[in-house]
Design a protein around this nucleic acid. Structure first.
Lengths: 143, 143
DNA sequence: GTAATTGCAAATACTTTGCCACGTA
DNA sequence: TACGTGGCAAAGTATTTGCAATTAC
């Protein structure tokens, strides 16, 4: 799906849950989509599209709302700061993270965890199950 | 391995890297071993064996040292606070976490990720590779 | 017009450090 | 004795909230 259509679609989904179409919301969604990797609140608030647009507290509250309605997801990724990423339907992403320089790269290989997830769903009765898988190590340039 | 032997072994490993055998170190290791799940700095500092024993800053610095020498590992697990867990040789643990009440339970099934980890090691040249796999969902009592 | 959204500043939560006293080897 | 370790208090970093002003619908 082209970016423009995707943005419109995301905004529609937001509107459908009662969110208002504000400049800050639009720019936040576009930024997340363009960047295409997990970003911290700070990174987002400092990014070109948002730094002049709105306060960090606004970005925080938007991410909070977007996460509640399932448009974004909050990830741990080991840093002190939380990371946020767009949650596009039908996609799933695992990450490889350098413990020295903090670089985060998406893993291309298919995720081998879905079957186990299904087993856990059945055996434990947990609802709304999802998983996070991250690999940590020292990247070639750091070692 | 029985707890007592294991403790002695852990302390030996600490001593071998230059750490001194202090009451706080012993109690911290025993607490981590007894509890057998990831714990936050706060939980540890408030726990029976440590609350009268030493300051939170001490627990923090011990965990820091233990993590550097590979006796413990720092996990993200999505909370604002970091979690620490003992890193026992030859073991690996994945977790199932309730997004409502925060309960953390170890997963019994074998981890299906080791082969992918090997592929990543070979393809990317990352060193000291390890992974974290967590499942999140709403536990039966919360739903 | 009404309710959601925002900015700013202040409050919280958790972590991290400085400094000097203390304990282990 | 020497150097790692400990307590206490202060600083640092990231998050979260209160409230009045503003904006979307």
């Amino acid at each position: 799906m082209p970016h423009k259509t995707l943005t419109a679609d995301l905004i529609d989904r937001c509107r459908a849950t009662g969110l208002r179409r504000t400049k800050a919301l639009e720019q936040l969604l576009v930024t997340l989509m363009e960047t295409n990797r997990p970003m911290t609140l700070n990174e987002l608030a400092q990014s070109p599209r948002l730094i002049e647009q709105c306060d960090k507290a606004t970005v925080f509250r938007l991410l909070q709302r977007l996460t509640v309605i399932g448009i974004t997801r909050r990830l741990g990724l080991h840093e002190r700061a939380a990371y946020f990423t767009l949650l596009l339907p039908g996609t799933h992403q695992d990450y490889l993270i350098c413990t020295q320089c903090g670089t985060i790269e998406p893993i291309k290989a298919p995720c081998p965890v879905h079957q186990l997830e299904e087993e856990i769903r059945v055996k434990t009765g947990y609802k709304d199950l999802y998983h996070e898988l991250e690999f940590f190590g020292i990247c070639p340039s750091c070692s």
